[in-house]
Computed example of a mutant assay.
Amino acid sequence: MQNNDLAVAMKLGMRRLASGVCVLSTTLADQQRFAMTVSSVTSVSDSPPSLLVCINQLVSQQGHLATLGSQFAVNVLSAEHQDVSNICAGRAPTQDRFGVGNWENDDTGLPVLSDAQAVFICQTDQVTTYGTHKIIIGAIHKVILNEVDVNPLLYADGSYGVFGRQ
């Protein structure tokens, strides 16, 4: 299989892997807020508590996020947050990404969704580049668990779905 064929097959295969949808949010050096939808988030370790997020190098703010010590929040979306996901994915590029959803600043000054399933407050601890993406490992400093039913927003094959409990 040629590399181009392998890349196409890989993309088609990955469309079948459901992932939770999150929004990464931060405050930039100029105090402007930034948010983007991410689906490549996973835990790294519980000792020390950490997670990783993969960000395409074409994202305008990846340099800020890849700076050691930068703070960011990973907001785990619920089934009711499809509109937040869409806006933060840039599907309406002229619309304010913080104009949709229940955003507030936490005690660190980061914008967070007050009704997210969970929010992980992180600080960039390690960064590596692989192919087209930056892999950012965030040391978790705080976890906000909201009193909501576990009902995460999922994404697979270009569509949203929900986790159904039997």
Score class of each variant (00 low, 15 high):
Q32N: 14
A29G: 12
T27Y: 12
S25V: 01
A9F: 07
Q31C: 07
V23M: 07
M10H: 01
A7C: 06
A29N: 12
S25N: 01
R15P: 03
L12I: 04
L17Y: 13
V8C: 10
V23H: 02
L17I: 08
S19F: 05
M14D: 08
S25A: 04
C22H: 04
L28F: 14
L17T: 05
L24D: 00
T26Y: 04
C22T: 14
K11H: 10
M36T: 02
L17V: 02
C22Y: 09
M10I: 09
M36F: 08
L12W: 04
R15C: 07
M14F: 06
V21Q: 08
A18D: 04
A29K: 11
A18V: 06
V21M: 06
A7P: 05
G20R: 01
V21D: 06
A7V: 15
Q32G: 06
A7G: 06
V23K: 00
G20H: 06
L17S: 03
R16L: 15
S19P: 03
M14K: 00
M36I: 10
A7L: 15
L28V: 05
Q31N: 12
D30H: 09
M36L: 11
M10A: 13
R15Q: 13
Q31D: 14
K11G: 01
G20E: 09
L17Q: 08
L24H: 01
T26V: 11
L24Y: 09
R16H: 14
A29M: 11
R15H: 04
M10L: 14
L24E: 00
G13T: 05
M10E: 07
L17H: 05
M36W: 02
M14R: 00
A7E: 12
G20A: 12
L12C: 09
A9W: 05
Q32H: 15
L28C: 14
A18S: 13
R15G: 06
L24A: 05
S19V: 12
L17K: 03
M36R: 04
L28D: 12
L12S: 11
V21H: 09
D30M: 13
C22W: 03
Q32D: 08
A29Q: 14
R16D: 11
S25C: 00
F34H: 15
V21G: 07
T26S: 12
M36S: 05
S25W: 00
C22G: 09
Q31S: 10
L24N: 00
A9T: 04
A18T: 08
L17W: 08
S25I: 00
R33M: 15
D30I: 11
V21F: 11
T27W: 10
A35I: 04
M14G: 02
G20T: 09
S19Q: 09
S19K: 04
L17E: 12
A7I: 15
R16Y: 13
A18M: 06
M10W: 07
C22P: 02
Q32F: 06
A35R: 01
Q31P: 01
L12A: 02
R33S: 12
A9G: 01
M10N: 05
G20D: 08
C22M: 05
S25G: 01
A7F: 15
